[in-house]
Design a protein around this nucleic acid. Structure first.
Lengths: 325, 325
DNA sequence: ATGAAAGCGCTAACAT
DNA sequence: ATGTTAGCGCTTTCAT
C-alpha cells in the first residue's frame, strides 16, 4: 500500500521507488530527488517484513545464550548486538536457562526469521544442531563436525594460574569443577597439565553449579582439606568462596589463595580484587558475527574453529603460601 | 512455495493447510491428521515472515535498554524475554549505550517489525517518543503524556534508608547523585523528604556516572567531609566506595555506613554485604510485557503509570555511628 | 532510465 | 468443512 502511495504521488512506478531505496544510482538524479522528497513528506520507509519476504533476506541475526542475566552472556550479547548493528542487522535474543529443550525450540523458532544464528555453549543434541545448520550457524564453545565455531581456550591460562600459585609456594591446589561441558573440560585440561608438569597432585572438588551460592558451599569443603590455594570454575564461584571465607574470619590471600575464571566486572569489585583468567567474551561475540556475515554473503568461513586465547590477570586474591602451613 | 507443496501432497487447498496451523478445529479431524502427517514428513512449518505480512502481526516484541551488559538492564531484558516467550513472542534487543540518537534509531528500526516496543529509561526527545507511539509502546522509568508506563518508585525506600541510618545515630548523611534523569530524581526526592522530616541537613555530591569507577572516586570526596554515612545512586557506585575505603584501610560500617540502590546480585557478593534498596527489575519487565500484550490485543492498558515499589534491604554495610565521631 | 508483471509464502474474506 | 480469490508491501526480471 505504501510504496504505491509514494509512487503515484511522485508520478513514477513502484519499481522506481523501490530502486531509489535499494540501488539509488540506478535511477536518474532528478526523479530520485523527487521520490525522496515525497517519501520524506509521507514519512515513508520500506516495510522490512515485506522486504524480507521479497528478498529472502531478513536483515536479522539471532543469538541464544544460556542466561541473559549472566554477566558473561550479557557481555557476549552486547558485543554481538553492536557488531551486528555495524552492518545494519538487528538482533533476536533469547535465553535457554540451560534447558536443552527450550534452547532447541528457540533456535528453531528464530531460524526462519534470521539470516544467521549464533549459539553460545549450546546444550542440545548433535542431531538438533546439524538440522539447524541449514542456515548460517556459528557455535560458541562447542565443537561439532565442521560447523563454524569460535571457542575460548582457557586451558593454557588456567595452567598459568597453577604455575603462578606454585611459584608462590603452593603445593596443594584444588580445582572447583563446574558443570560438565566444554568450558569445564578446557579448564580441567589446563589444570591437570600444569599439575603434571609441576609435580603437584591434582585434586578436584565438585562439580558445582557455576553460581555464587555454590562457591559459598564449596569454601567449607576446601577448608576441610589441606589445600592452600583454589582455582574456581568461574568468578562467581570464586567470589562465593571469598565471601564464605570472610564470614569464617579467614583472610585472602593469607589463609587461602583464590583464582577465578572469566574476569567479569565482578572480579575488580570484590575485596580483595580477584586474580582470574580473562576470557575474551566480547571478542568471541564479534568473531561469531563476522563468521555469520561471511556465511551470509557466501564468503568462505574459517575451516577450523577460531580459538581465542585467555590470559591470567594477577590481582590481590593470590599471594605467597603462609609459612606455618 | 511450501504451503502449496503440503497442500498438493495432502490433496487439499493451501487454505486448509493454513487453517490446520491457525484454527485446527475449523477443519475436519481426518483431513487435519492427513495434513499434519504430510507437514511432519516434509518438516514443514509456516514461514513466519510471510505469515507476518499476511496477518499484519509479527509475533515479535522489541526492547531497547541503556546497556545490555549492565546487570540491571540484563535482568529486565531476561524477564521481558521470558514473559514474552510465554505468549509465543520472540524478542528483539538492542542497547543504546546511552546515546539518544542510537536509541531513537534502533527504536525506529524495530518498530515496523514488532507488535510492541518497550523502552527502558529512554533518553530521546518527547517528540521522538510520541512519534513512535503509533505502535503499542510502553515506557519504563519515563513519563510522557498518557503513554503507558511502568515506573519504579524508589523514593519511599530511599527515605527508609535515611531513616534507618538516622536510627543508627547518623546525622551527616550524604547522597551521591547519579546522572540526571527519572531515577535520580526519585531517589533525590526520597532523600530530601526524609532529611526534612528528620531534621538532617541534606548534602549532595556529584553527579557521578553510575559506575564502579565513579564510586571509587566519590569515596575520597566523601571522606573529605564529616559524613558518617552515604547513600549512593546505585549498587555499582556503592561498591566502588566500598572498594576505595578498603584500600584506604577504613572499615565499613565502623568508619562509614554505605547504602546502595538496585539490589543487583553484586550486593550480596561484596564484603561487607551491601545494605541496599531493592528495585523490582524483573517485575517491571513483566509488567511492561503485559501492558504491551494488552495493547496489542486491544484490551485497555492502565490509564495511569504502573508504579512499582522498592524496599530497603538491610545487610552489613550499615551500622551504628561510631562513638568517637 | 523506467514500467509492467509476476511472485515471495501465507492469511482471510467470501463462496459453496 | 473446504476451495477460490485477493491481497499483505516489496523486489526483480524482462521489456521498452
Amino acid at each position: 500500500m505504501s510504496i504505491r502511495e509514494v509512487a503515484t504521488r511522485a508520478g513514477v512506478s513502484p519499481a522506481t521507488v523501490s530502486r531509489v531505496f535499494t540501488r539509488p544510482d540506478a535511477v536518474a538524479p532528478d526523479t530520485r530527488d523527487r521520490v525522496l522528497a515525497v517519501a520524506q513528506e509521507l514519512r515513508y520507509t520500506p516495510h522490512p517484513v515485506a522486504r524480507s519476504l521479497a528478498r529472502r533476506r531478513t536483515g536479522n541475526l539471532g543469538i541464544v545464550v544460556p542466561d541473559i542475566a549472566n554477566s558473561f552472556s550479557a557481555v557476549v550479547t552486547k558485543a554481538v548486538q553492536q557488531e551486528a548493528a555495524r552492518d545494519g542487522y538487528a538482533l533476536f535474543v533469547s535465553g535457554s536457562d540451560e534447558r536443552a529443550q527450550d534452547e532447541e525450540q528457540w533456535a528453531r523458532a528464530m531460524a526462519p526469521q534470521v539470516d544467521g544464528l549464533m549459539l553460545v555453549s549450546p546444550l542440545m543434541s548433535d542431531e538438533a544442531l546439524r538440522e539447524l545448520a541449514d542456515i548460517p550457524l556459528v557455535l560458541s564453545n562447542r565443537l561439532l563436525d565442521a560447523l563454524p565455531a569460535v571457542v575460548t581456550d582457557a586451558s593454557d591460562a588456567v595452567g598459568h594460574a597453577v604455575e603462578h600459585l606454585h611459584a608462590l609456594g603452593h603445593r596443594e591446589i584444588v580445582y572447583l569443577a563446574g558443570p560438565d561441558g566444554f568450558a569445564n573440560t578446557m579448564r580441567l585440561r589446563g589444570y591437570h597439565g600444569a599439575c603434571r608438569r609441576l609435580g603437584v597432585r591434582p585434586r578436584e572438588l565438585g562439580p558445582f553449579n557455576a553460581r555464587f551460592a555454590d562457591g559459598v558451599r564449596a569454601a567449607d569443603l576446601v577448608l576441610a582439606t589441606s589445600a592452600t590455594a583454589v582455582v574456581a570454575y568461574n568468578d562467581e564461584v570464586a567470589v562465593g568462596v571469598l565471601n564464605r571465607l570472610a564470614d569464617r574470619g579467614l583472610r585472602v590471600p593469607d589463609d587461602l589463595s583464590v583464582v577465578g575464571v572469566d574476569d567479569t566486572s565482578l572480579a575488580e569489585m570484590v575485596t580483595p580484587r580477584l586474580t582470574t583468567v580473562r576470557l575474551p567474551a566480547a571478542e568471541s561475540g564479534r568473531v561469531g558475527v563476522r563468521i555469520l556475515l561471511d556465511l551470509i554473503d557466501r564468503r568462505p568461513a574459517p575451516a577450523e574453529p577460531v580459538r581465542l586465547a585467555a590470559e591470567l590477570i594477577v590481582r590481590s586474591s593470590t599471594g605467597p603460601v603462609r609459612h606455618g602451613e
